[in-house]
């Protein structure tokens, strides 16, 4: 996967986890939901590790960095060139 494809997959998986976590906050006993959440988190973390290895840290004070300190590098998320093209609705 190139950077855009990796970032797209990671963004989507992390979003799945966010939405499922909000559901779990009000449905803590839903074991089916919990299983799906844990599966996605594991998959996302594996991809996250790959992404960080190739493209640099996603977190300050949590991720390792090569020298010189990579955290400060462009692009930052608010810059257009940081972002991938998602495409429209799936119909």
């Amino acid at each position: 996967m190139n950077r855009d494809e990796m970032l797209k997959a990671l963004t989507a998986m992390d979003f799945y986890a966010v939405d499922m976590a909000l559901y779990l906050n009000t449905h803590p006993d839903d074991t089916e939901a919990l299983a799906r959440y844990n599966a996605i988190v594991n998959e996302a973390n594996t991809l996250r590790q790959s992404y960080e290895q190739q493209y640099g840290p996603l977190y300050s004070f949590r991720s390792c960095s090569a020298a010189p300190w990579q955290w400060i590098n462009d692009p930052w998320p608010w810059q257009a060139q940081f972002n991938f093209t998602l495409g429209g609705d799936d119909k």
């Binding site: 997959a9 989507a12 939405d19 499922m20 449905h27 996605i40 609705d89």
Partner: peptide
Amino acid sequence: WQLLCGTMPPIQSLKAGTIF
């Protein structure tokens, strides 16, 4: 009260704004 039936796959969910 919402009850879980099924969820959409991640990329489809991201486009839709929810997994449900």
